[in-house]
């Protein structure tokens, strides 16, 4: 980050008009994506997925199976990309790292007492360091929503900055849990806080509460990324997570990225989908595009 960047006053971030945001989103969803552009888009979607399992019942066995799927989405169709990363709890990072050796698929770990973030600073730092030491390439932290809603923006800023420091070379994704933040104005504000505090990615949700990612929320975050980019020259990535389970919806998200941030963000270095079931729907659509017919979901592996 450039040393010249001045940190703005977060009490006066730009205002957002919800009706206007929803109208803009409606324009994206009415785009018609056909033929080659659809195929190209679907392959992009696959390559941007963070294949995720974040459950209390996760085991090494389950994580290994998912890792194989991550690198071998559907070997029947040649030329498919791998997903971008797998996303697991810190305790599963080592297992995932070993399973993915040589595949190019990254390992992302949630941290900071995911999903609630209700723990002490020390525990959040050690949670993060543990994941990084075990080989995590990316850290998905959660912010302290309670402190944010209290108006304690300095706390939120400092916490993100210190986790960023603990990440070392790992890229930091900052989860806002937008479903708990209530207004689009808040989402804009927290996006600015996270980016100025050093986030490499900003991410909507943990997937644990509803609503998770929505297009209006994602648009507000993309516009914040755009303004931050113009202000600082630094690119920040975007990851909507939770609730995106169909190919059609994922393509509409990509349209939104393309028309808000442009071509530079259309790669898994700068855009990700946090999803568990999206990949198979995209694979089914790709098979349909190739063969002209839909296949049963039993033709696509569920790991």
């Amino acid at each position: 980050m450039s040393t010249k960047t001045t940190i703005p006053d977060f009490r006066v971030t730009p205002s957002i008009d919800q009706v206007g945001i929803e109208e803009r989103v409606a324009r994206f969803t009415s785009r018609s994506i056909k033929k080659e552009s659809k195929m190209q888009g679907m392959k992009m979607v696959l390559s941007m997925i963070d294949l995720t399992t974040l459950e209390g019942k996760d085991t090494e066995g389950k994580v290994k199976q998912m890792c194989y799927k991550a690198a071998h989405l559907h070997d029947v169709i040649p030329g498919l990309p791998t997903v971008a990363a797998v996303c697991v709890y810190p305790s599963m990072v080592k297992t995932a790292k070993d399973a993915l050796k040589g595949t190019g698929v990254k390992v992302a770990s949630v941290s900071t007492a995911f999903p609630s973030g209700q723990s002490t600073h020390e525990i959040k730092i050690s949670d993060t360091k543990f994941a990084v030491d075990n080989g995590a390439d990316e850290i998905d932290m959660v912010i302290s929503r309670g402190e944010f809603l209290k108006g304690n923006y300095k706390f939120v800023f400092d916490e993100i900055a210190s986790i960023k420091q603990a990440c070392g070379k790992a890229r930091l994704k900052v989860i806002f849990e937008t479903g708990e933040l209530s207004t689009l104005d808040n989402i804009r504000k927290v996006s600015d806080i996270a980016m100025y505090a050093g986030a490499d990615f900003i991410k909507t949700s943990t997937g644990k509460i509803s609503p998770a990612a929505t297009m209006p929320v994602t648009l507000v975050m993309l516009e914040a990324i755009r303004d931050y980019y113009y202000a600082t020259g630094r690119m920040v990535g975007m990851k909507p997570a939770g609730g995106i389970s169909t190919s059609k919806l994922a393509l509409q998200y990509l349209i939104m990225v393309n028309e808000t941030l442009g071509a530079d963000w259309l790669s898994n270095e700068w855009f990700r989908f946090g999803a568990s079931s999206l990949a198979n729907d995209v694979l089914m659509q790709i098979a349909k595009q190739n063969t002209g017919v839909y296949q049963s979901s039993d033709y696509f592996s569920k790991d």
Partner: peptide, 19 residues
């Protein structure tokens, strides 16, 4: 990073097929 021009590129990577 400071050398790179701060500019967004639209309609470069993903053109929509005629519909």
């Amino acid at each position: 990073m400071s050398k790179k021009e701060v500019k967004l590129k639209f309609n470069a990577a993903w053109d929509l097929a005629p519909a």
